[in-house]
Design a protein around this nucleic acid. Structure first.
Lengths: 348, 348
DNA sequence: TTGTAGGCGTTATCAA
DNA sequence: TTGATAACGCCTACAA
């Protein structure tokens, strides 16, 4: 019934065409398309047949002009890592498209003064509304943004929020539990002297990882104080802070970095200092980002389902029912690769 | 005149409001908004004042329903590296937004059979047209896609096209010249025995880099045959192929990889084999991607202005004048870091 | 140089 | 359960 190839230049069918072909009114066609109740099965069948025959698809512009929906979901981005961003974007995209929606991208810069930031937001929604935004970190915790959206009754879902959990719906993982799992892994290998490379103070999730790691070690009975340093979430920061950490005496036998980039920095610092990973020292990260498999040895890390988080966020946004400030947690996974091993006997 | 804060819930002004306030007709307002000719300075001033006072912005949905433009630019993506994609995306975004356009993202999978691929394309443009697409590699060289768009008279600009240059407008760099510059750099350092890590056969730009590198060496007077191997553009591939290359006897003193990822793989292979970079062997890459500064030592590479390419592509698309198949070339830059150095005296 | 009338393709309001 | 008819906000003829 539906022709396999659709002539490129044939004029697109409109609702009028469908109504005429099926012999019903315009409004009835509209009802069928939007799945409204109070439509007889007979009428619905007729309309659907006509739609199929004409290869009809509703026009998005007309729909959003006449109605309240735009069939567009916005993804709000603010300089996270390319790897992270693309994963989120892909997850959001797939769900959005499967619902016949489109994905719009918007970048903002949240490091500017409040007034400028507000102006950016104004500009975004001025001439082209969308049906909701997916917020990525650090925007997920930007109170100014949340206020702005709520004042305009624009729906949003936050990814990896760390703040104000009652504020709006969100998707996250249990950072503390994931860090604890890593602590357990190192403990089981026999490590007893640890160092933590924390992230920048602004990154709330990093603090949770650090705290979760340390809390678990204390629970397991770690006696030694656990030193830490700020790796700034970057490779360069990881090198600098890593050099500090491995210069301690006695040297820690294992370093847990709160993200993969700074973990790679620690590995570079070890390499410069002549320490072999994992023989002389174990190093592990967090994220299972692309760099985890782009260093040698491959990095032991925590996988967080970033793409799935994007999917879940989009799905939440597309479900029109109002959900008040519920944060859904997704699972994580310990990924044990080659950068962690039992400590040397002489040191153990 | 323009209020600094704009009440969140005030109804948005329409063209009607502007017309009424400025005491002119609807059409005149339209003329001013669209910068049409034949408008007196006086009238224009009145209308612009009213627009400012009412904080008016045209409604995108109404505009695209009534007119032919949608004020949306699509970015067509197909699994390139996150780093590359995000750079392009950012460049396109900035230009698009500065023209009051919005950016729509569309992913396709070009590895599927032709029929499925066409179906994907159909789905993309069925219910929501856009004013043009920016095509990223490898889609820039996808003939099926180009045919599809041309048949529907949809404008596009190709990024880094390697094929069929007369086909449609595009933005690129001179890959061969960039690779030649790298050859010159290594030659000047004193290297005389080279290896090339080429990319996958499907990536046309990689072949140009390899060929350009070799051609330049021959021009410089290289006598030794230049060995090469396929690094698959990936870190893993780089390790495997790198092991082959450095096992040659006599060993090459410099390895040029056609992208950074496989260059990092070469460095890992060297590390495994006990070779120090750059003391024992020089390694260089291409792209100046993020990994170039996430390895130790930092990678010597070629910077290509990816973000600018995105900008240029968007700018080309937004200029409505018809440009037939012109490829604009942007500049590249040699980035000399720590992974290249003169060869050891004993080997030189 | 300016203005008037009609239409773009859909949803929403009412009445039947 | 269905269907006329009027918006939605703008642009494109065409006329003045």
């Amino acid at each position: 019934m539906t022709p396999l190839t659709f002539p490129a230049n044939s004029a697109r069918a409109t609702m009028d065409d469908v109504a005429r072909l099926s012999g019903v009114s315009l409004k009835s066609v509209s009802r069928v398309i939007n799945g409204e109740p109070h439509v007889s099965a007979n009428l619905r069948a007729k309309v659907e047949a006509a739609i199929a025959e004409l290869n009809y698809v509703p026009d998005a512009a007309a729909r959003s002009l006449a109605g309240s929906r735009t069939f567009i979901i916005g993804l709000l981005l603010d300089n996270p890592s390319p790897h992270y961003t693309m994963k989120i974007q892909k997850g959001v995209y797939n769900v959005v498209r499967s619902h016949q929606y489109h994905l719009r991208i918007d970048n903002v810069d949240s490091t500017v003064p409040d007034e400028q930031f507000s102006a950016q937001l104004e500009a975004l929604i001025r001439n082209n509304r969308c049906d909701g935004f997916v917020l990525t970190p650090p925007l997920s915790d930007n109170l100014l943004l949340l206020d702005f959206l709520e004042a305009r009754k624009i729906r949003y879902v936050r990814i990896a929020p760390a703040l104000d959990n009652a504020r709006g719906p969100g998707i996250a993982i249990d950072d503390a539990a994931a860090a604890a799992a890593m602590a357990q892994h190192l403990w089981d290998l026999g490590h007893r002297r640890f160092a933590v490379m924390r992230g920048p103070a602004s990154h709330m999730a990093a603090a949770r990882r650090r705290d979760g790691f340390i809390a678990e070690l204390e629970r397991l009975g770690s006696a030694t104080p656990i030193i830490d340093a700020d790796g700034g979430f970057s490779f360069e920061g990881g090198i600098a802070a890593g050099e500090t950490l491995i210069a301690q005496s006695p040297r820690p036998t294992a370093v847990f970095a709160c993200n993969d980039d700074s973990a790679a920095g620690v590995m570079a610092a070890c390499s410069k200092a002549g320490l072999k990973v994992p023989d002389d020292i174990s190093v592990c990260g967090f994220d299972d980002s692309w760099i985890a498999r782009s260093v040698w040895p491959y990095l032991t890390t925590v996988y967080q389902p970033i793409e799935e988080m994007g999917q879940a966020a989009a799905a939440l946004l597309l479900r029109r029912d109002e959900q008040e400030g519920k944060i859904s947690q997704l699972g994580f996974q310990l990924v044990i690769r080659d950068s962690t091993a039992p400590p040397r006997q002489t040191q153990g």
